[in-house]
Amino acid sequence: MSEKHVVVQGATCECQHGFMPDMLKVSSHQYEYANDKDGSQKLIATTLEIGQPFQANTFGQCKLQPMGSSYKPCQPMITEWTGFYEDTLLKNGGNIIVEDSKATCAISGAPCVKITNHGQIAEPSQQNMENADEDTQAQLNPMVNTNDLSNTNTESMENGIVENVK
């Protein structure tokens, strides 16, 4: 799983036979979270996200179902996931879906739904600031004193900008 992102609730998916993306909705469990320091929003997607695990449950129109000069509306029915992380089994009995996993739709009979955005968002925490390398941060953010950010005393933050007079 090295260098691959775990897919979470809200990941963007596209079908190669559809016309628009849809967002993944995790409904197979309420236990394991990723990229969410409060553990309340980013559920980890598993191989048990089958059936219609999307918010709008459509990718627009389906190119595999022509209807005159147009196409029938897409109604994805996911039957399985491939390319998932096999070395971990979560509480619900499913494996973790990663960013290069693909889903098979019953209409196409082949893996046609891909993940275009894994759904994770960088959200630095206090622990990240405490563990950051001071020299590297000084080069990346020359205007920011990282010692002030990692200070657990929040009094100065509550007062807004405080000028240090020496």
Rank of each mutant, 00 (worst) to 15 (best):
Ile161Asp: 12
Met129Glu: 02
Cys13Arg: 01
Ile97Tyr: 01
Asn153Gly: 04
Phe19His: 06
Asp133Asn: 06
Thr12Cys: 10
Asn57Met: 12
Cys105Met: 05
Asn117Arg: 10
Ala110Phe: 14
Gly109Ala: 11
Gly83Arg: 03
Asp87Trp: 11
Cys112His: 11
Gln9Ala: 15
Val26Glu: 00
Ile161His: 15
Lys37Phe: 14
Glu130Cys: 10
Gln30Trp: 07
Leu149Gln: 05
Thr116Tyr: 04
Leu24Ser: 02
Gln16Ala: 14
Met1Asp: 08
Met1Phe: 13
Met143Ser: 08
Lys166Ser: 15
Gly119Cys: 01
Lys102Ala: 10
Ser28Phe: 15
Met1Pro: 08
Ile50Met: 05
Ile121Glu: 09
Gly68Leu: 11
Ala11Gly: 13
Leu43Ile: 08
Gln30Pro: 15
Thr79Trp: 12
Gly93Ser: 11
Ala11Asp: 03
Asn35Gly: 15
Thr12Asp: 08
Thr88Glu: 10
Ser27Leu: 11
His29Cys: 07
Ser69Thr: 09
Ala110Met: 11
Leu64Glu: 07
Ile161Gln: 05
Leu64Tyr: 09
Ile96Glu: 00
Cys105Ala: 05
Thr136Trp: 00
Ile44Arg: 01
Glu80Met: 09
Ala34Val: 03
Asn153Cys: 07
Ala11Trp: 04
Met129Tyr: 15
Pro53Tyr: 01
Cys112Phe: 12
Gln55Met: 12
Thr46Gly: 03
Glu80Ser: 09
Gly94Thr: 04
Pro124Lys: 00
Thr136Cys: 05
Glu14Leu: 15
Asp22Pro: 00
Asp148Trp: 14
Ala110Gly: 07
Ala56Trp: 08
Lys91Tyr: 15
Lys72Met: 14
Ser150Met: 09
Glu163Asp: 13
Cys13His: 06
Ile78Trp: 02
Asn153Arg: 02
Pro21Glu: 12
Pro111Thr: 06
Val7Asp: 00
Lys114Asn: 14
Ser150Ile: 07
Val165Lys: 13
Glu86Ala: 14
Glu123Tyr: 04
Cys13Ala: 13
Leu89Tyr: 08
Val113Leu: 10
Glu158Lys: 09
Asn164Phe: 05
Ile121Ala: 09
Lys114Thr: 13
Pro66Met: 02
Cys105Lys: 02
Asn35Asp: 10
Asn95Val: 03
Thr136Asp: 02
Gly93Ala: 06
Thr46Ile: 04
Gln75Asn: 13
Gly94Arg: 01
Val113Thr: 06
Leu43Arg: 05
Gln120Trp: 04
Ala138His: 13
Asn57Gln: 12
Leu89Asn: 14
Asn128Gln: 12
Val26Arg: 00
Leu43Gln: 00
Ser2Glu: 15
Leu43Gly: 03
Thr88Lys: 10
Leu24Glu: 07
Met77Ser: 11
Glu158Cys: 06
Thr47Ala: 01
Asp87Pro: 07
Met129Pro: 01
Glu32Ile: 14
Pro142Ser: 12
Ser125Met: 10
Ala45Thr: 00
Gln139Thr: 11
Glu99Gly: 04
Asn159Phe: 11
Ala138Cys: 11
Ile107Arg: 07
Ser70Gln: 13
Met129Asp: 02
Leu48Pro: 05
Val144Gln: 14
Pro21Leu: 08
Thr46Val: 03
Phe59Arg: 01
Ile44Gly: 01
Lys4Thr: 12
Met1Gln: 08
Ser28Trp: 08
Ser101Leu: 04
Ser125Arg: 01
Thr79Tyr: 09
Thr82Phe: 12
Asn57Ala: 13
Ala122Glu: 08
Pro124Ile: 00
Asp22Phe: 05
Gln120Asp: 05
